[in-house]
Each structure stands twice: as structure tokens, then as C-alpha cells.
Design a protein around this nucleic acid. Structure first.
Lengths: 215, 215, 215, 215
DNA sequence: TATGAATGAGATTTCATTCAT
DNA sequence: GATGAATGAAATCTCATTCAT
């Protein structure tokens, strides 16, 4: 049934074999961050990825699966980061924390890094399973790692006798707030330089407090 | 639609029409938090509020207007809080901050208080106008108030010469993280008692740092 | 299409290309019966046939073509059956009908036999052309053949003076109902033995009626 | 935000309160019979019913629910018919059967009557639950009722000693075949008159058989 | 005021079909 | 000959919103 002269160049099907799920996930991340999970349309994700809507479903069985894929993909780098943190802990607690926060601050301006946690936080109540995965794979690794650094610092006499578990919030909380304030409300300087300046102040306050006198 | 002159009861069967918008907002807040803005159905909000879907539209012209109403309703308490903060600033910076954080910690376990900021954060990119309102009315009052407390503490010699603007993140960030960790991932103790314990450690670390020696 | 002289094995790994269309039709029949024409997915048909979806289109230009193929394939056996019926008509009408119904009853438990008519009945209104083909090639051969047997029986004085055309429904209808009741609603005994028992009763009633006295 | 002059006559919403589910079911029956369940589009059903697609979903939660509704609606008339059959059984078996078949033949030309069974038969394998409902509510009432008539006829000496269970197929089968042949393949006369002629021949053959002599 | 009824516009998902290899 | 990759076109179902009462 081939009609006369089926023009050779009909490029209806463009890519092949390499339009990897990764590109789809990148597109999904972009749109989920910009629009939120519900408001993001699969068609737009496909458009960003340069493929058709149906092709998205070739790689991911549903829209939620994109979210899952995002979480799963975000797990390994973070796990590696946590491992590194622990491996590096040969010097003082101060050095360890400074190192970790330095790592974080060098990465955190990349939406691919902070985007997934941000989405998870927003969609957690609707998709508890996802939150669970994220918590199991990321939170439950990061938190103990940091706490362990603090505990060892206390044990070695380097740090005061604070509650390690709760103090983790003082280490990480300000950073989250800095990023959130900047990305959501445009408050503060979210550039790499601004982030570095913030980190210096953060580390200073964290280790020395804001009071002039020790108690 | 009770007939004319229902002398006796009427209270049970008719709610005061004045209270309706507030009940609708409560319902909206509940559902926006549980489902997210997009996924929350107006019909369900109405059901929670005990009225019909069409009646919601009697009070609010659109679904987004519910979000606006939520933001606007959350403004006044926070504004009052900020005002109080400034009024109370007669003692030391430490006392002022301790007072403010005490206020916050006493309120923050109420979903009606932290729910709105949480929703705003999640929906900010989709509704920049809302974020703007929130920023204008809340952020831009809270932040300067806190910064001013820090600045005056520095000026009086009570506090070290930290960057007041950035240090605000060290004051508020850990609290946000504590609440977020607890409500989203179930990490930590979100009860009033747990919050108080956290606050004590937070204030301790904030004012004294975690290092044993001053620099 | 086996390559030249594949002396050794090839049987296991390559199916004879000639048999393919038939296997595809078998798979299509299976799925059309189980799911109906619309609900049956070409991909599943391919999977049952052990080939890829695209390969189905190598043999059949469209999904409807599978239906056509099914009808066409079902025609010849039935035609042969009809021919046999006529050829055998040397004895009495009773013997002829008994013979034919015996043939039918020996075959009818095979889904490949009654499956196609069943599908055609269900999809007839959507694909009148198919129904036409089936009617032209099958119905219009079977019915006259049976009617002719009856007519000759009447002419020879063996049978009463019934309406041959309408009486065909009394000959075939009960059988259809028996099969349908069994396969669809699980009513009755659809085994070969059960079918034989039914046939005996059917022939008895058909030839003798149910009344005790002749009119 | 009301624009100037909102023309009073905008009839976007036409009917009210009386666009009953019944009309939707009628439309569904029409289309299911013409197109089959899968191929029938809800939008077209709505169009036939004179309402919008969404309104269909106001009354029926899903497309399958339309099928269920159809079965359920068809149940009561048939049940009543069965009851009547039994109530009427005061005369002879012949009279009872003649009466019942007369009733059936007077109704069977209405698509609303024979349509539902036809659809059920076609979709039974895909929706076993529906088949179950139909079997429980219809088949399991009709069959015993007929069988009981035959049994009593045998007991009273009016009928020969046939197998009542199996003979039911001889009573009902020819009728189904007549209707099916006419509606699907256009074979035979499906008019009321044609049906009556057929019934006469059917009853004659049924009660007297086709052989000239009794065995 | 309050609401039942209705719908337009759109979202996700499916699938027959096709091209390049 | 065989198939993995890709897609256009549709179908079901949802929901914010509105009108008549």
C-alpha cells in the first residue's frame, strides 16, 4: 500500500533509543517546581522534553510515577553525600560541619538539588508513600550523620554539651530558610557569592552564638 | 428558610451568616493543607463547612479567592505579633527574642497558624500575587522587626557584631525546620512540651554557639 | 522463509512463517472472545502469538482485518460441513438431521468453532460488512440446506406439513441456547456427555413434540 | 465583574429536575446496541439524551454504571412477567406455555426488551458481575418457572415424560434464534405479524413434533 | 440566602498504527 | 522478516463555575 514516492525525509519520529527517561525527569522537575504537581500538565512536560505526550507514558506509567522517579533519582547523590560526610570526619567537628555545609552550599543553588525536597515537602500530605521513601532514604541518613558529628564533638570536648538531635535543626534550618526566602519571596541574595557570605555568618553564629559573653 | 417568626430555637438550625466566610476559610485551610490547592475540590470544602458548593461562591468569587482570604485573615494576627514584638523591646535583645520565640512556640502547633505559610510556600510560584501579599504584609514586617532587635543588641554591646540581616535566618530557620520535620516527616516531637524543649536548646545554641571556647 | 539450508536446528527458534498468520488469528480469536473486539488490544494479541505488535501488522493491515481473517478462515470448514450434510441426504430426514446435529454437537464445544459466530453476533452492528460476509458464506448455505432436508421429508410423507423455513429455528435454536446458557451463564452441563444427553432430548422433542397425544 | 448587559435569555442550562436517569438509560441502550459497549462514546449517549456529557456523570458514576443501570431496570418487568407466568398456571401446560410465549412475542419486538439480554450476552465475559446479576435476577427466575410448568404437565399426564430442564431450551431457543437471525442478519420476518406466524409454527412443532407418527 | 442542576473546558491515559533499523 | 520507539487522535472522567428557583 506504499503510495507513490514516500518522501524519504519524513521525520515524524525523531529521536531514538536515547530520549532517556532522564530527560523526561528533568522536564518534570522543572514543571513541578514551577507549577506544582497537580497543576503541571503532562503535555507540557513532554513539550519541554521534546517528545510527545504518549512517549512520556512509554517510560513512566503515570504522572505520579514521574514523582517517584524524581525521588528515586535524587536518592543516590544524597546518599553519597552523606557517606562522604562520614568518611571525611577525621578532623574536628567544626571542620566536618564546615566541610559538609560547604558542599551543600556549593550545590544548593542548582534547582535539581533543592527542587526535589521542595516538591516532596509540598506534596507530602498527598503522597505519603513518597514522603516515606524520601524520609527512609535521605532524611534518616542525613540526620544521624550530622547528629553523630555533633555527638563526637561533644565527646571529644570540642563542643558544649548541647542536645545533638535538636541542634541539627540549628545547623540545617538556617540554610533551608535562606534558600526558601530567596527562591520563594526573593528576599536576600541567592547567588553563589551571597550564599557564601551567608554561610560565613551562619557558621560564625552557629559556633560562637550571638552573645558577647559566654554564660 | 424557616418561616416567619421562628421565635424559639433557630440557633441550632441557622448559623450566623456572619460567621460563614470564616467557617469556609477554615474548611479551605484544612483541605488545602491536606490535599494541596489544586487537588482540593471546592465541593469538599463546602461539605466540610456544612454548606453547598454554590454557597461557597456566594462568599468567595473563586477558588483562588479562598487562598487570598486565607492569607488576608492570617495577616492581622501576625501583624499584631510583630507590633507586640517591637513594643516589648524595652529589655535586652535576649529577652526580646526569647519573648518573641516564646510567643511563636505557643502558637505554632495550631495548624491555623503555620498552615497558611506552608500553603503559601507550596503555591507561591503559581500565584506570585499571593506570595507578594504575604511578603508585603508578613515577611516585610517580621524580618525588619527581628533585624532591628539584633541591631539594637549589637549597638548596646550586648551582642557580637554579626550580620543582623543574615542572622535572622539563624533565629527563625531552626524553628521552621523543627515544625516542618515534625509535620511532614514525623521526625521529632511536635507536642507543646517537645517544642518547649527544642526552644530551650535553640536559644542556648543561638546565644552561646556550640563551641566550648569563644574565639 | 527459512534461509537456505539451515540444516541443524532452526525449528526451535524460528517458527514457520507460513504458520504465523494462523497463530495470530488464533490469538485474536482467544482475545476477541474474552475481551470483545474493541477491548482487545493488538499488543496482547501479539503477546499471545509470541511476536511483536508490529509483526501483527506485517500480516494483517489493521485490527479489523483480523476479524475479517477470522471470518474467512471459519468459512471453509462450515461450508464443507454444509456440503457433507447435503451429500449424506440419502436416508430419511430424521437420519439426516440426526447426523448433522451429531456432527455439530461433536464440534461445538471447541471455542474455535462457536467462537467466530459468537463474535460476529456481538460485533455485527458495528461491522455490517463482516456480518454480510458471514451471512453470505455461512448462514445462506446452512439454512437452505436444513430447510431442504425438511422439505424433502415433508414431500416423502415422513414429516408433517410444517413450515420448513420456520422449523429450522426449532432445529438449531435449542442448540444455540444450550451452548449460550452454558458458556455465558454457566447454566447446564456443557461437557461432551452433557451435550449428548441434551441432543437426545432435543431430537426426541423435535420429532415427537411434548404432547402425549397427536392432534 | 458583570459585563455590561448580561442578556437575560442565555439558555445555557435547559432542562431541570426531569432529565431523569431513565432518558440516559434509553440513550445508552440505543447506543450500546448499535455500537457495542466499548465503542459507544459517552458523549454520544449524552447527545442522544439531549444533555451534556458531564450531566451523564451526574447520574451515573461511570460508563459501566450505565450497563448496570440497564440490567437493573430490565429486571423488574421480567420478574413480574415470571410471576405472572406462575400465577396464570391454572389451566393446562399447553395453555400456560402458549400464554407465556404470547406475552413474550408481543413484547420482544421492542428493542428495550430484547436489547438488554443481547448486550449482556455480548459483554458477559468482560463484566462477569453483570452477567451474575442478570443470571440471578432473570435467568434463575425464568428457567425454573418454565421447568415447573413442564413438570406439572408431565405429572398431570398431559405431556410426555421428557426432561423438563433440557426441554426449556426447546421452548425458548427457537424464539431467541428467530429474533437474533432477524435483527442481526436480516433473515426472516421480524414484524409482529411475522413473529406471530413463527410462534404458531413453533408451538405446533413444540407440542406435536415434526414426525408424522408417534413413536 | 441557599442550592440543585447543568456544563464547558480540560486533564490523564490508552491504543491502533507507523517508521527506522 | 521483525521489532523497538514514537505518536496522533481519541475516550473517560473531573471540576470550577453559573443559572434558575
Amino acid at each position: 500500500m506504499t503510495k507513490a514516492a514516500p518522501t524519504k525525509d519524513s521525520r515524524k519520529f525523531r529521536r531514538r533509543a536515547d530520549a532517556r527517561p532522564d530527560e523526561v525527569l528533568d522536564a518534570a522537575l522543572t514543571l513541578f517546581m514551577r507549577e506544582g504537581f497537580e497543576a503541571a500538565r503532562v503535555e507540557d512536560i513532554a513539550k519541554i522534553a521534546g517528545i510527545s505526550k504518549a512517549t512520556v507514558y512509554l517510560y513512566f506509567p503515570s504522572k505520579v510515577a514521574l514523582l517517584e522517579g524524581l525521588v528515586r533519582r535524587a536518592i543516590s547523590p544524597v546518599a553519597i553525600l552523606a557517606e562522604n560526610m562520614l568518611d571525611q570526619f577525621e578532623g574536628t567537628a567544626k571542620e566536618a560541619i564546615t566541610l559538609v555545609l560547604g558542599l551543600v552550599s556549593s550545590r544548593i543553588s542548582d534547582p535539581k538539588i533543592y527542587g526535589v525536597p521542595a516538591i516532596i515537602m509540598c506534596e507530602a500530605s498527598r503522597f505519603p508513600d513518597l514522603a516515606k521513601i524520601y524520609q527512609d532514604e535521605v532524611i534518616s541518613h542525613m540526620l544521624p550523620a550530622l547528629r553523630s558529628v555533633v555527638d563526637r564533638g561533644i565527646a571529644s570536648g570540642e563542643l558544649r554539651n548541647v542536645d545533638a538531635e535538636l541542634t541539627v535543626r540549628n545547623i540545617a534550618g538556617p540554610i533551608f530558610m535562606h534558600v526558601a526566602a530567596a527562591s520563594i519571596f526573593g528576599v536576600g541574595d541567592n547567588s553563589a557569592a551571597g550564599l557564601r557570605t551567608f554561610m560565613e555568618n551562619h557558621l560564625d553564629v552557629l559556633f560562637n552564638g550571638i552573645s558577647k559573653e559566654k554564660p
